[in-house]
Design a protein around this nucleic acid. Sequence first.
DNA 1: ATAAGATTTCAGAAAAATCTGAAAATACAA
DNA 2: TTGTATTTTCAGATTTTTCTGAAATCTTAT
Lengths: 206, 206
Amino acid sequence: MARNSKASSTPAVKAQLVEAQDRFIASWGRMGSVWGISRTMAEVHALLYITGKPMCTDEIMDRLRVSRGNVSMSVRSLLEWAVIEKVRLPGDRKEYFQAEQDVWSMLRAIARERIKREVDPLLDALDEIGELAPQIGSHSPEDVVALQRRLDGVREGFGLITTLTHKFAGPRGAGLQTAAKLLAKAPVGRIGRSTKHLKSRTGARP
Amino acid sequence: MARNSKASSTPAVKAQLVEAQDRFIASWGRMGSVWGISRTMAEVHALLYITGKPMCTDEIMDRLRVSRGNVSMSVRSLLEWAVIEKVRLPGDRKEYFQAEQDVWSMLRAIARERIKREVDPLLDALDEIGELAPQIGSHSPEDVVALQRRLDGVREGFGLITTLTHKFAGPRGAGLQTAAKLLAKAPVGRIGRSTKHLKSRTGARP
DNA sequence: ATAAGATTTCAGAAAAATCTGAAAATACAA
DNA sequence: TTGTATTTTCAGATTTTTCTGAAATCTTAT
Protein backbone atom coordinates (compact mmCIF):
# COMPACT_ATOMS: atom_id res chain seq x y z
CA MET A 1 0.00 0.00 0.00
CA ALA A 2 1.16 3.52 -0.84
CA ARG A 3 2.59 5.77 1.82
CA ASN A 4 1.06 9.17 2.46
CA SER A 5 3.50 12.00 2.82
CA LYS A 6 1.40 15.03 2.14
CA ALA A 7 0.43 17.44 4.85
CA SER A 8 -3.29 17.20 4.07
CA SER A 9 -5.23 13.95 4.40
CA THR A 10 -5.99 11.83 1.39
CA PRO A 11 -9.44 10.22 1.44
CA ALA A 12 -7.86 6.90 2.37
CA VAL A 13 -6.04 8.35 5.34
CA LYS A 14 -9.17 10.17 6.36
CA ALA A 15 -11.10 6.93 6.37
CA GLN A 16 -8.49 5.19 8.49
CA LEU A 17 -8.60 8.10 10.87
CA VAL A 18 -12.34 7.91 11.27
CA GLU A 19 -12.16 4.16 11.66
CA ALA A 20 -9.62 4.54 14.46
CA GLN A 21 -11.76 7.17 16.13
CA ASP A 22 -14.80 4.93 15.94
CA ARG A 23 -12.92 2.10 17.52
CA PHE A 24 -11.74 4.32 20.31
CA ILE A 25 -15.28 5.51 20.87
CA ALA A 26 -16.53 1.95 20.98
CA SER A 27 -13.91 0.88 23.52
CA TRP A 28 -14.46 3.83 25.75
CA GLY A 29 -18.19 3.32 25.52
CA ARG A 30 -17.86 -0.30 26.50
CA MET A 31 -15.93 0.76 29.56
CA GLY A 32 -18.64 3.21 30.44
CA SER A 33 -21.02 0.43 31.27
CA VAL A 34 -18.47 -1.08 33.62
CA TRP A 35 -18.27 2.29 35.38
CA GLY A 36 -21.98 2.59 35.83
CA ILE A 37 -22.42 5.40 33.34
CA SER A 38 -24.42 4.99 30.18
CA ARG A 39 -22.79 3.82 27.00
CA THR A 40 -23.87 6.95 25.19
CA MET A 41 -22.45 9.25 27.82
CA ALA A 42 -19.10 7.53 27.54
CA GLU A 43 -19.27 7.62 23.75
CA VAL A 44 -20.01 11.31 23.63
CA HIS A 45 -17.05 11.94 25.86
CA ALA A 46 -14.84 9.69 23.74
CA LEU A 47 -15.92 11.44 20.57
CA LEU A 48 -15.18 14.89 21.92
CA TYR A 49 -11.88 13.80 23.37
CA ILE A 50 -10.54 11.89 20.40
CA THR A 51 -11.48 14.47 17.80
CA GLY A 52 -10.50 17.38 20.01
CA LYS A 53 -13.01 19.44 18.08
CA PRO A 54 -15.88 21.40 19.60
CA MET A 55 -19.08 19.80 18.37
CA CYS A 56 -22.74 20.74 18.54
CA THR A 57 -25.67 18.51 19.35
CA ASP A 58 -26.48 17.69 15.74
CA GLU A 59 -22.97 16.70 14.87
CA ILE A 60 -22.87 14.37 17.86
CA MET A 61 -26.25 12.91 16.99
CA ASP A 62 -25.17 12.21 13.45
CA ARG A 63 -21.84 10.73 14.29
CA LEU A 64 -23.07 8.46 17.08
CA ARG A 65 -26.52 7.76 15.70
CA VAL A 66 -28.39 8.58 18.88
CA SER A 67 -31.36 10.76 19.64
CA ARG A 68 -31.35 14.43 20.48
CA GLY A 69 -32.66 13.77 23.95
CA ASN A 70 -29.97 11.26 24.66
CA VAL A 71 -27.24 13.66 23.59
CA SER A 72 -28.75 16.40 25.69
CA MET A 73 -28.78 14.26 28.81
CA SER A 74 -25.33 12.83 28.23
CA VAL A 75 -23.86 16.23 27.70
CA ARG A 76 -25.40 17.52 30.88
CA SER A 77 -23.87 14.67 32.87
CA LEU A 78 -20.48 15.21 31.29
CA LEU A 79 -20.66 18.88 32.22
CA GLU A 80 -21.40 17.85 35.81
CA TRP A 81 -18.44 15.51 35.75
CA ALA A 82 -16.47 18.50 34.50
CA VAL A 83 -14.80 16.55 31.73
CA ILE A 84 -16.28 18.65 28.93
CA GLU A 85 -17.14 22.30 28.67
CA LYS A 86 -19.52 24.50 26.76
CA VAL A 87 -18.13 26.70 24.02
CA ARG A 88 -19.97 29.40 22.13
CA LEU A 89 -18.86 30.38 18.70
CA PRO A 90 -19.66 34.00 17.93
CA GLY A 91 -22.35 34.39 15.30
CA ASP A 92 -23.63 30.89 15.91
CA ARG A 93 -26.66 30.17 17.96
CA LYS A 94 -25.75 26.59 18.78
CA GLU A 95 -23.88 25.42 21.80
CA TYR A 96 -20.69 23.55 21.17
CA PHE A 97 -18.95 21.18 23.52
CA GLN A 98 -15.34 20.25 23.84
CA ALA A 99 -13.54 17.78 26.00
CA GLU A 100 -10.84 18.42 28.51
CA GLN A 101 -7.74 17.62 26.48
CA ASP A 102 -5.30 16.98 29.30
CA VAL A 103 -5.47 13.32 30.17
CA TRP A 104 -4.35 13.81 33.72
CA SER A 105 -6.93 16.34 34.57
CA MET A 106 -9.50 14.17 32.86
CA LEU A 107 -8.45 11.24 35.02
CA ARG A 108 -8.62 13.41 38.10
CA ALA A 109 -12.14 14.45 37.27
CA ILE A 110 -13.15 10.85 36.77
CA ALA A 111 -11.56 9.77 40.05
CA ARG A 112 -13.22 12.60 41.91
CA GLU A 113 -16.63 11.80 40.55
CA ARG A 114 -16.33 8.11 41.22
CA ILE A 115 -15.31 8.65 44.82
CA LYS A 116 -18.25 10.96 45.22
CA ARG A 117 -20.65 8.42 43.84
CA GLU A 118 -19.20 5.22 45.23
CA VAL A 119 -17.35 5.85 48.42
CA ASP A 120 -18.87 8.89 50.08
CA PRO A 121 -22.35 7.38 50.40
CA LEU A 122 -20.84 4.25 51.85
CA LEU A 123 -18.87 6.20 54.43
CA ASP A 124 -21.94 8.11 55.46
CA ALA A 125 -23.87 4.88 55.82
CA LEU A 126 -21.07 3.36 57.86
CA ASP A 127 -21.07 6.24 60.30
CA GLU A 128 -24.79 5.89 60.71
CA ILE A 129 -24.66 2.13 61.14
CA GLY A 130 -21.88 2.39 63.69
CA GLU A 131 -24.04 4.61 65.83
CA LEU A 132 -27.16 2.55 65.39
CA ALA A 133 -25.38 -0.68 66.27
CA PRO A 134 -24.93 -1.77 69.90
CA GLN A 135 -22.02 0.16 71.37
CA ILE A 136 -19.04 -1.50 72.91
CA GLY A 137 -19.08 -1.49 76.69
CA SER A 138 -16.81 -3.03 79.28
CA HIS A 139 -18.46 -6.43 78.98
CA SER A 140 -19.84 -6.42 75.46
CA PRO A 141 -20.49 -9.77 73.85
CA GLU A 142 -17.96 -10.84 71.28
CA ASP A 143 -20.52 -10.35 68.47
CA VAL A 144 -20.81 -6.68 69.16
CA VAL A 145 -17.09 -6.12 69.38
CA ALA A 146 -16.56 -8.00 66.14
CA LEU A 147 -19.22 -6.02 64.33
CA GLN A 148 -17.78 -2.69 65.36
CA ARG A 149 -14.30 -3.86 64.52
CA ARG A 150 -15.39 -4.85 61.01
CA LEU A 151 -17.27 -1.63 60.44
CA ASP A 152 -14.20 0.28 61.51
CA GLY A 153 -12.02 -1.74 59.22
CA VAL A 154 -14.06 -0.83 56.19
CA ARG A 155 -14.36 2.76 57.30
CA GLU A 156 -10.65 3.06 57.77
CA GLY A 157 -9.89 1.58 54.35
CA PHE A 158 -12.34 3.60 52.35
CA GLY A 159 -11.74 6.68 54.44
CA LEU A 160 -8.10 6.57 53.52
CA ILE A 161 -8.93 6.13 49.87
CA THR A 162 -11.18 9.17 50.01
CA THR A 163 -8.63 11.28 51.79
CA LEU A 164 -5.94 10.42 49.30
CA THR A 165 -8.21 11.04 46.38
CA HIS A 166 -9.01 14.47 47.66
CA LYS A 167 -5.38 15.09 48.27
CA PHE A 168 -4.25 14.16 44.81
CA ALA A 169 -7.26 14.36 42.56
CA GLY A 170 -9.19 17.17 44.23
CA PRO A 171 -9.65 20.49 42.50
CA ARG A 172 -6.70 21.84 44.44
CA GLY A 173 -4.94 18.51 44.69
CA ALA A 174 -1.31 17.78 44.03
CA GLY A 175 -2.18 15.94 40.85
CA LEU A 176 -2.12 12.32 39.92
CA GLN A 177 1.27 12.61 38.33
CA THR A 178 2.75 13.64 41.64
CA ALA A 179 1.16 10.64 43.26
CA ALA A 180 2.35 8.39 40.50
CA LYS A 181 5.87 9.68 40.81
CA LEU A 182 5.91 9.08 44.55
CA LEU A 183 4.65 5.57 44.10
CA ALA A 184 6.86 4.71 41.19
CA LYS A 185 9.93 5.38 43.33
CA ALA A 186 8.83 2.99 46.03
CA PRO A 187 11.12 0.03 46.45
CA VAL A 188 9.09 -3.01 45.46
CA GLY A 189 9.76 -6.36 43.82
CA ARG A 190 8.29 -7.75 40.64
CA ILE A 191 5.29 -6.64 38.67
CA GLY A 192 2.83 -8.63 36.64
CA ARG A 193 1.71 -6.92 33.43
CA SER A 194 4.17 -5.77 30.84
CA THR A 195 4.90 -2.11 30.59
CA LYS A 196 4.79 -1.89 26.81
CA HIS A 197 2.07 0.73 26.93
CA LEU A 198 4.57 3.11 28.50
CA LYS A 199 6.76 3.24 25.41
CA SER A 200 5.18 6.47 24.35
CA ARG A 201 4.89 6.73 20.60
CA THR A 202 5.19 10.46 20.34
CA GLY A 203 6.80 11.47 23.60
CA ALA A 204 3.97 12.52 25.87
CA ARG A 205 3.30 15.63 27.87
CA PRO A 206 5.78 16.86 30.48
CA MET B 1 -33.24 2.33 77.64
CA ALA B 2 -31.30 -0.22 79.72
CA ARG B 3 -27.62 -0.79 79.10
CA ASN B 4 -26.36 -4.26 78.35
CA SER B 5 -23.30 -5.38 80.25
CA LYS B 6 -23.43 -9.13 80.03
CA ALA B 7 -21.01 -11.08 77.89
CA SER B 8 -23.79 -12.88 75.98
CA SER B 9 -26.29 -11.01 73.83
CA THR B 10 -29.77 -10.25 75.10
CA PRO B 11 -32.49 -10.57 72.48
CA ALA B 12 -32.63 -6.79 72.20
CA VAL B 13 -28.92 -6.49 71.50
CA LYS B 14 -29.15 -9.34 69.08
CA ALA B 15 -31.87 -7.55 67.17
CA GLN B 16 -29.83 -4.37 66.97
CA LEU B 17 -26.92 -6.38 65.75
CA VAL B 18 -28.91 -7.97 62.97
CA GLU B 19 -30.39 -4.62 62.06
CA ALA B 20 -26.93 -3.11 61.76
CA GLN B 21 -25.76 -6.04 59.65
CA ASP B 22 -28.73 -5.67 57.34
CA ARG B 23 -28.01 -2.01 56.87
CA PHE B 24 -24.43 -2.73 56.06
CA ILE B 25 -25.51 -5.36 53.56
CA ALA B 26 -27.91 -2.93 51.95
CA SER B 27 -25.28 -0.19 51.63
CA TRP B 28 -22.67 -2.50 50.22
CA GLY B 29 -25.22 -3.95 47.84
CA ARG B 30 -26.18 -0.51 46.62
CA MET B 31 -22.54 0.18 45.87
CA GLY B 32 -22.32 -3.03 43.94
CA SER B 33 -24.49 -1.65 41.21
CA VAL B 34 -22.21 1.36 40.91
CA TRP B 35 -19.31 -1.02 40.45
CA GLY B 36 -20.95 -3.00 37.74
CA ILE B 37 -21.50 -6.12 39.79
CA SER B 38 -24.93 -7.39 40.67
CA ARG B 39 -26.64 -6.28 43.83
CA THR B 40 -26.90 -9.83 45.06
CA MET B 41 -23.25 -10.53 44.52
CA ALA B 42 -22.34 -7.52 46.61
CA GLU B 43 -24.87 -8.48 49.26
CA VAL B 44 -23.56 -11.99 49.60
CA HIS B 45 -20.10 -10.60 50.04
CA ALA B 46 -21.31 -8.09 52.58
CA LEU B 47 -23.15 -10.76 54.53
CA LEU B 48 -20.14 -13.03 54.71
CA TYR B 49 -17.84 -10.20 55.60
CA ILE B 50 -19.93 -8.55 58.26
CA THR B 51 -20.92 -11.74 60.06
CA GLY B 52 -17.48 -13.27 59.67
CA LYS B 53 -19.16 -16.65 59.81
CA PRO B 54 -18.87 -19.40 57.20
CA MET B 55 -22.30 -19.86 55.69
CA CYS B 56 -23.85 -22.38 53.35
CA THR B 57 -26.09 -21.74 50.38
CA ASP B 58 -29.32 -22.20 52.31
CA GLU B 59 -28.34 -19.82 55.06
CA ILE B 60 -27.47 -17.18 52.50
CA MET B 61 -30.73 -17.75 50.61
CA ASP B 62 -32.77 -17.40 53.76
CA ARG B 63 -30.99 -14.35 55.03
CA LEU B 64 -31.00 -12.41 51.77
CA ARG B 65 -34.25 -13.80 50.37
CA VAL B 66 -32.85 -14.71 47.00
CA SER B 67 -32.99 -17.84 44.90
CA ARG B 68 -30.61 -20.75 45.02
CA GLY B 69 -29.44 -20.12 41.48
CA ASN B 70 -28.66 -16.54 42.26
CA VAL B 71 -26.60 -17.49 45.30
CA SER B 72 -24.76 -20.10 43.32
CA MET B 73 -23.77 -17.65 40.62
CA SER B 74 -22.88 -14.88 43.02
CA VAL B 75 -20.71 -17.17 45.06
CA ARG B 76 -18.89 -18.34 41.99
CA SER B 77 -18.09 -14.78 40.98
CA LEU B 78 -16.91 -13.91 44.46
CA LEU B 79 -14.60 -16.90 44.41
CA GLU B 80 -13.18 -15.65 41.11
CA TRP B 81 -12.67 -12.25 42.65
CA ALA B 82 -10.89 -14.09 45.45
CA VAL B 83 -12.70 -12.20 48.16
CA ILE B 84 -14.35 -15.29 49.63
CA GLU B 85 -13.21 -18.86 49.96
CA LYS B 86 -14.76 -22.28 50.21
CA VAL B 87 -14.67 -24.05 53.54
CA ARG B 88 -15.62 -27.63 54.18
CA LEU B 89 -16.74 -28.72 57.59
CA PRO B 90 -15.90 -32.36 58.26
CA GLY B 91 -18.95 -34.58 58.45
CA ASP B 92 -21.05 -32.05 56.53
CA ARG B 93 -21.79 -32.45 52.90
CA LYS B 94 -22.53 -28.78 52.28
CA GLU B 95 -20.05 -26.22 51.11
CA TYR B 96 -19.55 -23.22 53.32
CA PHE B 97 -18.18 -19.87 52.29
CA GLN B 98 -16.35 -17.27 54.26
CA ALA B 99 -15.11 -13.84 53.40
CA GLU B 100 -11.60 -12.54 53.47
CA GLN B 101 -11.54 -10.76 56.83
CA ASP B 102 -8.61 -8.48 56.30
CA VAL B 103 -9.92 -5.25 54.81
CA TRP B 104 -6.69 -4.39 53.07
CA SER B 105 -6.38 -7.62 51.27
CA MET B 106 -10.05 -7.39 50.39
CA LEU B 107 -9.47 -3.95 48.90
CA ARG B 108 -6.48 -5.22 47.00
CA ALA B 109 -8.54 -8.02 45.50
CA ILE B 110 -11.21 -5.55 44.46
CA ALA B 111 -8.68 -3.19 42.92
CA ARG B 112 -7.02 -6.01 41.05
CA GLU B 113 -10.26 -7.30 39.64
CA ARG B 114 -11.46 -3.91 38.61
CA ILE B 115 -8.28 -3.11 36.76
CA LYS B 116 -8.54 -6.42 35.02
CA ARG B 117 -12.09 -5.73 33.95
CA GLU B 118 -11.91 -2.02 33.23
CA VAL B 119 -8.46 -1.00 32.24
CA ASP B 120 -6.75 -3.98 30.67
CA PRO B 121 -9.28 -4.36 27.86
CA LEU B 122 -9.01 -0.65 27.14
CA LEU B 123 -5.23 -0.82 26.94
CA ASP B 124 -5.39 -3.76 24.60
CA ALA B 125 -7.84 -1.90 22.41
CA LEU B 126 -5.63 1.19 22.44
CA ASP B 127 -2.63 -0.78 21.26
CA GLU B 128 -4.66 -2.24 18.47
CA ILE B 129 -6.15 1.09 17.45
CA GLY B 130 -2.76 2.75 17.49
CA GLU B 131 -1.50 0.22 14.97
CA LEU B 132 -4.58 0.36 12.84
CA ALA B 133 -4.57 4.15 12.66
CA PRO B 134 -2.46 6.00 10.09
CA GLN B 135 1.11 6.09 11.33
CA ILE B 136 3.04 9.26 11.80
CA GLY B 137 5.51 9.98 9.04
CA SER B 138 7.73 12.94 8.32
CA HIS B 139 4.94 14.96 6.71
CA SER B 140 1.83 13.56 8.40
CA PRO B 141 -1.23 15.75 8.43
CA GLU B 142 -1.99 17.39 11.75
CA ASP B 143 -5.05 15.17 12.23
CA VAL B 144 -2.98 12.04 12.30
CA VAL B 145 -0.43 13.45 14.69
CA ALA B 146 -3.16 14.65 16.99
CA LEU B 147 -4.94 11.31 17.00
CA GLN B 148 -1.79 9.40 17.87
CA ARG B 149 -0.92 11.95 20.51
CA ARG B 150 -4.32 11.55 22.17
CA LEU B 151 -4.20 7.78 22.00
CA ASP B 152 -0.80 7.89 23.62
CA GLY B 153 -2.04 10.22 26.30
CA VAL B 154 -4.75 7.82 27.37
CA ARG B 155 -2.43 4.88 27.09
CA GLU B 156 0.14 6.55 29.25
CA GLY B 157 -2.36 7.47 31.93
CA PHE B 158 -4.11 4.15 32.20
CA GLY B 159 -0.88 2.26 31.69
CA LEU B 160 0.57 3.97 34.72
CA ILE B 161 -2.51 3.19 36.76
CA THR B 162 -2.24 -0.45 35.80
CA THR B 163 1.43 -0.62 36.61
CA LEU B 164 0.92 0.93 40.00
CA THR B 165 -1.99 -1.32 40.77
CA HIS B 166 0.09 -4.35 40.02
CA LYS B 167 2.87 -2.97 42.08
CA PHE B 168 0.79 -2.33 45.15
CA ALA B 169 -2.30 -4.45 44.85
CA GLY B 170 -0.95 -7.42 42.94
CA PRO B 171 -0.68 -10.81 44.57
CA ARG B 172 2.95 -10.12 45.38
CA GLY B 173 2.47 -6.37 45.68
CA ALA B 174 3.74 -4.13 48.38
CA GLY B 175 0.25 -3.64 49.75
CA LEU B 176 -2.09 -0.73 49.72
CA GLN B 177 -1.04 0.37 53.16
CA THR B 178 2.48 0.91 51.94
CA ALA B 179 1.14 2.99 49.09
CA ALA B 180 -1.09 4.91 51.43
CA LYS B 181 1.78 5.63 53.76
CA LEU B 182 3.94 6.92 50.94
CA LEU B 183 1.19 9.18 49.72
CA ALA B 184 0.14 10.41 53.12
CA LYS B 185 3.64 11.81 53.68
CA ALA B 186 3.59 13.82 50.52
CA PRO B 187 3.68 17.56 51.09
CA VAL B 188 0.39 18.90 49.84
CA GLY B 189 -1.96 21.73 50.70
CA ARG B 190 -5.56 21.50 51.73
CA ILE B 191 -8.00 18.65 51.52
CA GLY B 192 -11.73 18.64 51.04
CA ARG B 193 -13.60 16.03 53.02
CA SER B 194 -13.31 15.72 56.75
CA THR B 195 -11.29 12.87 58.16
CA LYS B 196 -13.76 11.88 60.85
CA HIS B 197 -13.94 8.35 59.52
CA LEU B 198 -10.34 7.87 60.52
CA LYS B 199 -11.08 8.22 64.23
CA SER B 200 -11.00 4.46 64.64
CA ARG B 201 -13.50 3.30 67.19
CA THR B 202 -11.64 0.21 68.31
CA GLY B 203 -8.09 0.87 67.19
CA ALA B 204 -7.65 -0.91 63.91
CA ARG B 205 -5.15 -3.47 62.75
CA PRO B 206 -1.40 -2.90 62.92
C1' DA C 1 -42.37 41.87 20.93
C1' DT C 2 -41.84 38.22 17.65
C1' DA C 3 -40.41 34.29 15.35
C1' DA C 4 -37.03 31.03 14.18
C1' DG C 5 -33.68 28.20 16.14
C1' DA C 6 -31.97 25.52 19.85
C1' DT C 7 -32.40 22.90 24.06
C1' DT C 8 -34.71 20.33 27.68
C1' DT C 9 -37.95 17.28 29.45
C1' DC C 10 -40.29 13.13 30.10
C1' DA C 11 -43.78 9.36 29.08
C1' DG C 12 -43.58 5.37 27.01
C1' DA C 13 -40.73 1.99 24.04
C1' DA C 14 -36.76 -0.74 23.73
C1' DA C 15 -32.85 -2.97 25.46
C1' DA C 16 -30.10 -4.87 29.00
C1' DA C 17 -29.30 -6.89 33.30
C1' DT C 18 -30.73 -9.62 36.89
C1' DC C 19 -33.30 -13.19 39.12
C1' DT C 20 -36.08 -17.41 39.63
C1' DG C 21 -37.12 -22.13 39.76
C1' DA C 22 -36.90 -26.48 38.35
C1' DA C 23 -34.40 -29.92 35.68
C1' DA C 24 -29.83 -31.75 35.00
C1' DA C 25 -25.47 -32.68 36.72
C1' DT C 26 -22.40 -33.68 40.33
C1' DA C 27 -20.47 -35.32 44.73
C1' DC C 28 -20.63 -37.98 48.65
C1' DA C 29 -21.75 -41.68 52.19
C1' DA C 30 -22.80 -46.06 52.80
C1' DT D 1 -22.40 -49.29 42.93
C1' DT D 2 -26.84 -46.90 44.55
C1' DG D 3 -29.45 -43.50 46.63
C1' DT D 4 -29.55 -39.01 48.37
C1' DA D 5 -27.97 -34.51 49.34
C1' DT D 6 -26.03 -30.66 47.13
C1' DT D 7 -24.73 -27.71 43.40
C1' DT D 8 -25.00 -25.93 38.70
C1' DT D 9 -27.21 -24.44 34.73
C1' DC D 10 -30.15 -21.84 31.90
C1' DA D 11 -34.76 -20.59 29.56
C1' DG D 12 -37.94 -17.58 30.52
C1' DA D 13 -39.90 -13.96 33.83
C1' DT D 14 -39.03 -9.82 36.09
C1' DT D 15 -36.85 -5.68 37.08
C1' DT D 16 -33.89 -1.90 35.94
C1' DT D 17 -31.69 1.02 32.86
C1' DT D 18 -31.34 3.40 28.79
C1' DC D 19 -33.14 5.54 24.71
C1' DT D 20 -36.42 7.84 21.61
C1' DG D 21 -39.17 11.43 19.81
C1' DA D 22 -42.12 14.95 20.03
C1' DA D 23 -44.11 18.64 22.90
C1' DA D 24 -42.79 22.26 25.90
C1' DT D 25 -39.49 25.60 27.10
C1' DC D 26 -35.98 28.60 26.56
C1' DT D 27 -32.77 31.95 23.71
C1' DT D 28 -31.45 35.21 20.71
C1' DA D 29 -31.39 38.16 16.51
C1' DT D 30 -34.12 41.28 14.55
